[in-house]
């Protein structure tokens, strides 16, 4: 079963790539623009850290680790599972029907239905920043991949929860995008600037701390306690998002708007 799903996943990704390469020029310009965008942002932080040295105990190497994890996790979401952000539209116009009658997992089919090729730029940025971070080792790299994957699950879960609102009310697509953007902005700041009540919000309401605070701490100095909190936190929110989605699905009314995949 796992092998079959892996083969289907590869086939869908190949089809998504084919779609992206219908206009090769566009595809590569988009990646280039993404790189310029990312490195301009990173350069701004480099200038700040060059001037300040540290911010609440974080230096630029810590920021590099944070950019690496948040970049790779967002890239995994955007390249392979961006369809989850399309769910409100699928729910409102009835496109979800096509995925419900499929013999494969509904969320898997709907989530893999859409991809943004430009986010390969984030993969390049993330790997570059990891290798520039000064915390490079073979074991560390495996841990980095694991942490990025779990942070991806969290990003996916956040978007899924927001998309699930579409089962209850209409016009939630842009609201979901805006809230996810807030989550991303929070996860791309030095995690140590959030203290007191803000830190609580940073780890609960907007759980961006799981993308920045924990991964950087674990990559710098590994402890099993932090590893367990991180894994249970991200995994728990992911499971919660699945619960919300399947609960919402019972309310699905299947619209009849004309459309094409």
């Amino acid at each position: 079963m796992a092998a079959e799903n892996w083969e289907l996943f590869r086939f869908i990704q190949k089809s998504n790539l084919k779609t992206a390469f219908l206009s090769k020029g566009d595809a590569f310009v988009n990646i280039l623009m993404m790189l310029i965008n990312n490195f301009s942002f990173i350069f701004m932080w480099w200038v700040i850290f060059n001037d300040k040295g540290t911010i609440n105990g974080w230096n630029f190497d810590d920021m590099a680790l944070m950019f690496a994890v948040s970049g790779l996790s967002f890239a995994l979401y955007a390249i392979f599972f961006r369809g989850v952000a399309e769910l409100p539209q699928y729910i409102e116009n009835g496109t979800l029907d096509s995925y419900i009658v499929s013999p494969r997992n509904l969320l898997f089919m709907a989530s893999t239905s859409f991809s943004t090729f430009a986010n390969w730029g984030d993969v390049i940025t993330a790997l570059t920043m990891y290798f520039l971070s000064g915390y490079v080792s073979a074991g560390g790299f495996i841990l980095f991949l694991y942490l990025s994957f779990m942070a991806f699950l969290l990003t996916y879960a956040m978007r899924l929860i927001l998309s699930t609102f579409a089962f209850y009310t209409s016009g939630t697509e842009s609201l979901g995008n805006n809230i996810l953007m807030t989550f991303l902005i929070f996860s791309n700041q030095p995690a140590t600037i959030f203290t007191g009540i803000y830190k609580v919000i940073f780890l609960t309401v907007i759980p961006a701390g799981f993308v920045s605070l924990f991964p950087v701490a674990l990559l710098k100095s590994f402890t099993w306690t932090e590893f367990a909190v991180f894994t249970l936190g991200t995994g728990g929110i992911f499971l919660l998002s699945l619960f919300f989605f399947y609960r919402g699905l019972r309310r699905y009314a299947s619209g009849n708007r004309f459309g094409i995949r």
Binding site: F11, K18, S98, F258, G259, R261
Partner: peptide, 26 residues
């Protein structure tokens, strides 16, 4: 299932790619 009002084919890709995808899905 066939829904006259919507499509299960990939909009930009050749039709035979959609058929191949259906073969994999099933």
């Amino acid at each position: 299932t066939v829904f006259g009002q919507r499509s299960q084919l990939w909009y930009h890709l050749p039709v035979q790619d959609s058929f191949a995808l259906m073969g994999k899905i099933y």
